[in-house]
Computed example of a mutant assay.
Amino acid sequence: MDRASAHVIVLGNEKGGSGKSTTAFHLAIYLLYQGFKVATVDVDSRQQTFTSYIRNRREWSQSKGLRVPHPTHFHLPLTRGDSIRENQKVEFDLFRQAVMEIERDVNFIIIDTPGFDTHLTRLAHSLADTLVTPLNDSLIDLDVMAHVDPVTGEPRELSHYGRLVQRARKERMAIDGRTIDWVLVRNRISMLSSRNMRLVQTGMERTALRLGCRVAEGIAERVIFRSLFPVGMTVFDPLDEDLLGGLPSMSHISARQEYRQLVDALHLPITEHVDDMSGWNPSDETRQERDHEIA
């Protein structure tokens, strides 16, 4: 990858439970297996779901003696000052400093953002080269992007988050003349076709056209993800019973294929695609045995 600095991937959505942290974690592990250096940043100082995923992986692999790749991870401390404005300033300064320190040492930085609007959320979005917005396959979740006609699926009015991203794009263009590749990802797709499902798909496609972004087929609703979180594993890890804590299933294999298709759809600057996870050398990962609180 011939770049002066890292490619920044931001996971953003103002609705909780959309799958941002799970998607961010899977992207990070996939890129590590391809031989890239990856840093991950969790700017949700309240919930820290992304950080929990990272820690679960580290603790499980240590307890089982497993050799699996780990990203260099940073998370914001929970600020407890009396002034909200001062807390936001502290978080803003810490985040900016962390990104500046690592952007030339890694190939990719993956940032997971909270499900609400903050100055930090806006900063993270303006830094994105690729913005990934997972959306559950429902009209309720689509409403976060734009208010759509319940009959035709035609967007009537952009939502707050849609306008937030549009502002971030303008800021990015003014700073370095580059745009943000924004991708809406259909997530938790139902296995059964229905009128509501078709309406959501139509609404998402028309909303994407209005917003100037792309739509990628995402991940179906699968039990496998709930079982992988406690052990910090992903569908890209080897299909090994000891590593997974149980026998792999067809759901696991299908989910892996879906995530591979999602990575392809993101059009990331990956110069070499390595099949069968052969790009990772376990000896290269000893430096990434803990996560770091940004301080």
Rank of each mutant, 00 (worst) to 15 (best):
187 N>E: 01
164 L>E: 15
172 R>A: 05
208 A>S: 11
268 L>D: 04
144 V>R: 00
250 M>W: 08
208 A>I: 06
120 L>W: 11
179 T>F: 09
255 A>C: 08
290 R>P: 04
35 G>N: 07
54 I>A: 00
230 P>C: 05
289 E>F: 09
199 L>C: 12
81 G>W: 13
128 A>F: 08
23 T>I: 03
257 Q>S: 14
159 S>A: 11
82 D>H: 13
198 R>I: 07
273 H>V: 12
41 V>G: 05
34 Q>C: 06
286 T>S: 08
272 E>G: 09
151 V>L: 15
238 P>D: 05
136 N>Y: 02
3 R>G: 00
278 S>M: 11
180 I>Q: 13
202 T>R: 15
113 T>M: 07
165 V>C: 11
77 P>L: 03
145 M>V: 03
109 I>A: 05
220 A>N: 15
220 A>V: 14
286 T>A: 11
16 G>F: 02
169 R>S: 08
137 D>Q: 10
283 S>V: 10
59 E>M: 14
155 P>M: 12
79 T>G: 11
207 T>C: 05
278 S>F: 06
251 S>N: 13
53 Y>W: 14
110 I>A: 04
55 R>C: 02
261 Q>I: 02
133 T>Q: 06
126 S>G: 10
265 A>Q: 08
224 I>F: 05
286 T>I: 13
181 D>T: 15
39 A>Q: 02
3 R>P: 08
180 I>V: 12
1 M>T: 09
82 D>R: 14
226 R>T: 03
250 M>Y: 10
68 V>S: 00
45 S>N: 11
279 G>T: 05
259 Y>D: 03
251 S>V: 11
251 S>T: 09
59 E>R: 15
68 V>T: 06
161 Y>Q: 10
107 N>R: 02
69 P>W: 01
120 L>C: 09
104 R>S: 04
283 S>C: 04
284 D>T: 08
75 H>T: 00
64 K>F: 05
255 A>H: 14
57 R>A: 03
219 I>W: 03
39 A>L: 05
227 S>V: 10
57 R>V: 01
225 F>K: 00
108 F>H: 00
204 M>P: 07
163 R>C: 03
128 A>D: 03
46 R>N: 11
145 M>R: 03
2 D>E: 14
175 I>C: 13
215 V>E: 03
96 R>K: 15
42 D>P: 15
53 Y>M: 14
186 R>F: 02
210 R>N: 07
210 R>W: 04
203 G>E: 02
137 D>G: 10
40 T>G: 01
131 L>W: 06
118 T>Q: 01
182 W>Y: 14
147 H>Y: 07
192 L>Y: 14
204 M>W: 09
245 G>M: 08
57 R>K: 11
14 E>T: 02
152 T>K: 13
290 R>E: 08
43 V>L: 03
45 S>Y: 09
39 A>P: 12
124 A>E: 07
64 K>Q: 14
269 P>I: 04
103 E>P: 06
91 E>T: 13
25 F>L: 08
69 P>H: 02
153 G>S: 13
71 P>H: 04
131 L>K: 07
56 N>Q: 11
239 L>F: 12
182 W>Q: 08
174 A>H: 13
48 Q>T: 02
53 Y>N: 05
253 I>P: 04
